[in-house]
């Protein structure tokens, strides 16, 4: 390992911890929100469903960076609040990824045939029970690959937070580079780290999917 990396390891690791914290928080938040939104839209809850569709379409048409700017600059200005860059990042990522997860949840729900719903109802379950006990667990199992795709995206996205000044992994690495100027070794180190983390994350998804499908 080149000296520039080993000498700055503690600082870089700190950045990596921030990256992982943001990724974990937003993965959890995004999944919960996405699940709720997806189910609400699929159930065609009156009024709410329409509003949520607008939210989904808006987010899916917006670049992530612009989403972060909105959460960091625009929303606080609008509401007269002060948020830190990291808070804005978490909010932005959760809102962002939830819209995509909601779509995955919807197609997961749709992929479950009406025959199964009827079978569940026929055994005397209520609509809500069959949703909770049969449909959602089945759909979740089916969307695990899509879900982990989103998590990998999220992990890569965290680097964008450096643009609004969050000192996560990429931000820390670029700071180190500004001090010691060794862009090649630093970028190779950063790229490889993301590569390994992303590959790890997707293999977890694959294993989980295989385990649940069995």
């Amino acid at each position: 390992m080149p000296d520039v990396i080993s000498q700055n390891m503690p600082f870089l690791l700190q950045g990596l911890v921030t990256t992982l914290r943001i990724a974990a928080l937003t993965a959890i938040g995004g999944t919960l929100l996405g699940l709720a939104v997806g189910v609400a839209v699929q159930l065609r809850l009156p009024f709410v469903a329409g509003l949520l569709r607008v939210y989904i379409e808006f987010v899916r048409g917006t670049p992530l960076l612009v989403m972060l700017f909105i959460c960091y600059f625009a929303l606080p200005a609008l509401m007269g609040l002060h948020v830190t860059a990291e808070q804005a990042t978490v909010l932005g990522f959760v809102l962002f990824i939830a819209a995509y997860i909601a779509e995955d949840v919807r197609s997961g729900l749709r992929s479950i045939g009406s025959g199964l719903v009827r079978a569940a109802l026929a055994t005397g379950l209520t609509r809500l029970q069959s949703l909770r006990l049969i449909i959602v667990p089945l759909a979740l199992r089916r969307i695990i690959p899509a879900l982990f795709n989103q998590y990998v995206r999220l992990l890569k996205f965290t680097s964008v937070a450096s643009v609004i000044g969050v000192q996560e992994f990429t931000g820390s690495a670029m700071l180190v580079n500004a001090r010691v100027f060794a862009p090649v070794s630093i970028l190779i180190f950063v790229a490889l780290t993301y590569l390994i983390l992303c590959l790890l994350l997707s293999s977890v998804g694959r294993v989980l999917h295989a385990y649940l499908a069995a």
Binding site: V160, V163, T170, P183, L187, I188, Y194, L195
Partner: peptide, 17 residues
């Protein structure tokens, strides 16, 4: 190799690296 590295890093590789 390419899709598991964040886009921002891809850009930095060309611009900074």
């Amino acid at each position: 190799l390419t899709r598991n590295i964040p886009l921002l890093i891809h850009m930095y590789i060309w611009y900074v690296g």
